[in-house]
Each structure stands twice: as C-alpha cells, then as structure tokens.
Design a binder for these strands. Structure first.
Lengths: 195, 195
DNA sequence: TCTTGCATACATGCAGCCTGTATGTTAGAG
DNA sequence: CTCTAACATACAGGCTGCATGTATGCAAGA
C-alpha cells in the first residue's frame, strides 16, 4: 500500500494544484492579472487562500505556472503542425508552424495572458527566457534548418527569430477581418530572407 | 488683473500637475507601474494624495498622461530626424526615423513604460490608439510616402506599419552588444518590401 | 474700493479590499 | 503512535478611491 498511499498524497497535491492553475488560467484570461484576486482564484478552485499559498510562493508564481503551461501548449501545437508532412522541407515546416501559432493564438484569453500581461508581470527578461525554451525555440530551430538548407540567408539566428516572433505576436492580435492583410504584409517582409 | 489672476490660478494648477507627472514618470520608469504607489508619487511631487486625485481620476489616468507624453517626445524625435535633409527621399527618411526611434528608446525607463507596462495597464487597444496618433502615425506616413514613390511594394499600410513597428519595439529591447545583429536581421526583413 | 459669496485647489480622514505570513488543525505515512 | 505534509483560519500592513473639510483666489455688487 506504500505506492497507493504515497500516490494518494501526491495525487491529492497535484489535483489541488491543477484546480488552482485551471481556475487561475480562466480568471487571468477573462479579467487580467491585476483585476484577479487570490480570494477569487481560491474560491473558483474550491479551496482557501491557504492552499494557494501552500503551493505557490505568491500570486506571481501562480501566474508564472499558467504562462509556462500556455507556452507549452503553444510549442506543442507548432511542432505538431510543422512535423506533419513526411518530407516537408524547412520552409514549408516554417509556414505550417506559423499557421499553427496564429491558430492557437485565436483564443483571446491566451493572447491576454501571453502577450499583454506576461511581459509586465514577469518582466521582459524572464518571459524571454520562458519563450526561449518553448515557442521561440521552435522558431529558432525552424529558421536554423532553413538556413542550413540555404533556403534563407545567413543571419544572426536569435535576433532574427526574436524579430519574426515579434511580428507573429503582433499579427496574432489582429481580428479576423484584417488578418489577411497582416498575412500579406508578413509574406512581403519574410520575402527579404530568401537567398 | 483678471488675466493675471486667472492665470495665477491655472498656473498653479499646471505646475502641480507637471510636478505630479514628472514624479510619476520617474517612479514608473524605475519601479514599474504596479510597484509604484500613489503615496509615493505624491510625496515625490511634494503634495498629498488629495492633489493627485484632484487632478487625475485614478492611478491609471496618471499613467496614461505619462505614456502620452513619452509617445509625444518619441514622435517628435522621429519627425525631427526624418525631416533633417533637404531632399531626403522617402526611404532615407524612413531609415533616419528608425534610427531616431532606436536612439530615443535607449532610455530603459522609457522602454519599461511604453513597451512593458503600458500594454498591460492601458490595454492593447487603448495603447494602439495612442500609438496611432503618434509614433505609428509617423511610420504610416513614411511607409505611405515610400509606396507613393514606388520605392516599396503596394501593401496594406496599417498592418504593415504595425508589423514593422513591432519589429522596432523588439529591436529596441536589445542591449547594445547585440544591437548590430538586430539591425542586420531587420535590414534583411525590410529588404522584402522593395519593389 | 471694499467685501462678500462662491468656486477651485488642495489636505485629511475613512472604508474596504488585497496580499503575504503566521499560526492552527486534520489526515495520511512510516 | 508519532510526525509530517496538506490544507484552513486569523492577522498585520499597505494601498486605492472617495467623502468630507479648509483655505485661497476671484468675480461682482455696493
């Protein structure tokens, strides 16, 4: 019963944490970080603030966990889309990854959390570090592969990826009506990378 | 004495407001919006919180004023730099404006206020509206002129400007050491706009 | 010109909320 | 049976926004 027992403890722990993170994600998405209070999150998760502060150092730590999760989902979506075809070629993989990013970013709550609140709450440096482990990493890998294949010019990889990422972030904020215009403009800009 | 008297009142008013905005700008720049309290701002300005709330509806309104001022300075710097040469040509004007933007953005406090805190505090929509009246407007005008001169391709103007603006914002976050790499990558991307 | 009444620029005080921590309490694990 | 971990409860401090007080211009009439 050791295993069962130990798991029942850690299961409970993880379940509580998951409920907190889930409730927090919903509230942060709807009302933003500043307008969401910890009593609110705890109530939505069906626990007290004591539980929240038992599992997370502070409100920011809870937000950080939400951000990490969202970034993880994002990176997985991108990689799944970029790796669908058998022999896609690096350029096609990039385009598919970009589409997957824009699709995943259709969720307004995700946009608010990742693009609006996260830089201010976590600070640009920390958010950049998180990004570097997830979405940006996929972009760097994709651009690097394209460079190796001589499909695009040789350029400083991370700065280029950061710039392209910033463009994608901005495009993700566009409403559906103007999205085609953003795509057109992005295509023109990315055109400059071709060898 | 009507004029003198009336001016003495409004002079006092403007002086107090200016001191509040100046103190707020300094504190927001150093510690960010969330970590700056209204007692702190009032003390730094040498008044009480009563004065602050007499002149500004709330803490956010004070921040909004600071943001507007910073954006105004930015737009003026850009336009001054873009309009120096006699017959610059639209492309050269764009390059000079871009340089002026990056130079003005060297101030870390300005970066924090405009690029980190402003989107979260004011919301992306309102900040976009402010931007549209100032820095972004200069970019739209510049790109529009370049399009009219057939120097760059015909593309949806505002989306293009927003994307290029996002690139510049990101480049402005780079430290001095990696700035040349960002410039290289930006040059390549902008290259795609050429006719 | 004097003073009188009002509006405006502030100061002070108050109510409510929120965050983070410190201290209980219960239940599982060894 | 003890001990530790997962919570709940209670508390202290700070902050925001408003409501109320006060004093100083300021304009108009006697």
């Amino acid at each position: 019963m050791q295993e069962a027992n130990r798991r029942s403890q850690s299961t409970r722990r993880e379940a509580t944490k998951a409920r907190l993170v889930s409730a927090a994600r919903r509230l942060f998405a709807e009302k933003g970080f500043a307008a969401t209070s910890t009593p609110e999150v705890a109530a939505a998760a069906g626990v007290t603030r004591g539980a929240l502060y038992h599992h997370f150092a502070d409100k920011t730590a809870l937000f950080r966990t939400v951000v990490e999760e969202e970034h993880l989902i994002l990176a997985m979506s991108i990689e799944a889309a970029a790796g669908t075809d058998e022999e896609p070629g690096p350029v096609k993989a990039l385009l598919q990854g970009g589409d997957a990013f824009l699709t995943a970013m259709q969720d307004p709550g995700r946009r608010r959390i990742l693009l609006v609140d996260a830089p201010a709450v976590l600070g640009r440096d920390e958010l950049d570090a998180i990004d570097a482990r997830h979405s940006l990493r996929t972009l760097i890998e994709g651009l690097g592969a394209a460079m190796d294949a001589k499909a695009i010019r040789d350029l400083p990889l991370e700065p280029l990826a950061r710039l392209v990422g910033a463009m994608f972030d901005r495009a993700a904020m566009a409403d559906e009506a103007t999205m085609p215009d953003y795509r057109k403009a992005m295509r023109a800009l990315v055109r400059g990378l071709k060898t």
